[in-house]
């Protein structure tokens, strides 16, 4: 199977830099990271991709059985890492992808060397002393509303996108693909995401981890950020001055600079090393 094509893998940034993988969450696709990539690209090799069922991933690769478990998405990540022969890469996961990253780091520990968890939540539903922000009834309602929005969802996103003269940096392909998710696959992803409980995984994280939460986030509230930070050994928690669930869009500068600072800390610049290979250097 062609993993690159399957997951619409895009590699950008500095080809010989340390690799950072940016993973989107439930909802949209790799374009979520557009405004953050520039903060990393000069020094890091940036890998973007779409999960099967999202964005421009190959819909033929869809398997309801596989993608009804977060492990299925983690397998996508592991296969992309293997395809690119990554070693000790940083994995930046937004929302549910933060937990997918935890699962992937456990399954391919050599390939993933650090984690950035952006607006993570290991459990969305409140549970005996744990506050995820949603009741079981809320999630049932969400899933029911996904059912009733079947037509709305499939139809709503298509006419949305009309190009944007004020943001010329957003390319034409973006205007046709962003968030254009197959409603059947989106339903499975939503169910998998919002019914998941991966709290037990957090204590086993062994890599350096940065947790980024937003000041105000209806989906991953502050309590959850604190919970993740407390559960992941040695993690660092940063509260971004951002609202909503997508700081990479609502506050791309601060989000980018926090990720950059974390990565730079893991890869201190070697003053002896030239910024670029000298002519004649063998690669």
């Amino acid at each position: 199977m062609d993993t690159r094509r399957r997951n619409n893998v895009v590699v950008t940034g500095r080809a010989d830099g340390p690799t950072v993988v940016l993973a989107h969450g439930f909802g949209c696709d790799q374009n979520m990271w557009r405004l953050v990539v520039p903060a990393l690209a000069d020094r890091y090799r940036v890998v973007l991709f779409d999960y099967v069922g999202s964005g421009q991933a190959d819909p033929a690769a869809w398997s309801e059985a596989r993608y009804s478990r977060l492990e299925g998405y983690a397998q996508d990540v592991a296969e992309i890492c293997a395809e690119l022969e990554l070693r000790g890469a940083a994995f930046v996961g937004h929302s549910v992808s933060a937990m997918i990253g935890v699962l992937a780091a456990r399954s391919v520990p050599d390939r993933i060397g650090s984690l950035v968890m952006v607006a993570p939540s290991p459990r969305y539903i409140d549970d005996d002393g744990y506050r995820g922000g949603f009741t079981a009834e809320d999630i049932d309602e969400l899933l029911a509303s996904l059912e009733s929005n079947y037509l709305g969802w499939s139809g709503a996103m298509a006419p949305v996108i009309m190009g944007n003269p004020e943001r010329p940096e957003l390319g034409e392909e973006l205007t046709t693909s962003f968030c254009a998710t197959d409603p059947d696959m989106a339903r499975v992803f939503a169910r998998t995401t919002f019914l998941s409980d991966t709290r037990d995984e957090l204590k086993d994280v062994t890599v350096p981890t940065l947790v980024l939460e937003c000041r105000q986030d209806a989906i991953a509230p502050r309590e959850v950020g604190a919970y993740v930070h407390a559960a992941v050994p040695g993690s660092r928690l940063v509260t971004l001055d951002a609202t909503g669930h997508c700081p990479q869009l609502s506050a791309p500068e601060v989000t980018g600079s926090e990720i950059r600072a974390f990565l730079d800390g893991l890869h201190p610049a070697d003053p002896a090393a030239p910024a670029a290979p000298l002519p004649g250097d063998s690669r």
Binding site: G25, N31, E141, V160, C179
Partner: peptide
Amino acid sequence: VGGRIYYETHFEPLLRMKSEISG
């Protein structure tokens, strides 16, 4: 709640990216 999650995961990102959405 369903609408709120949809708003956070679709509506707002789109609006941020496009500056306008409809329907």
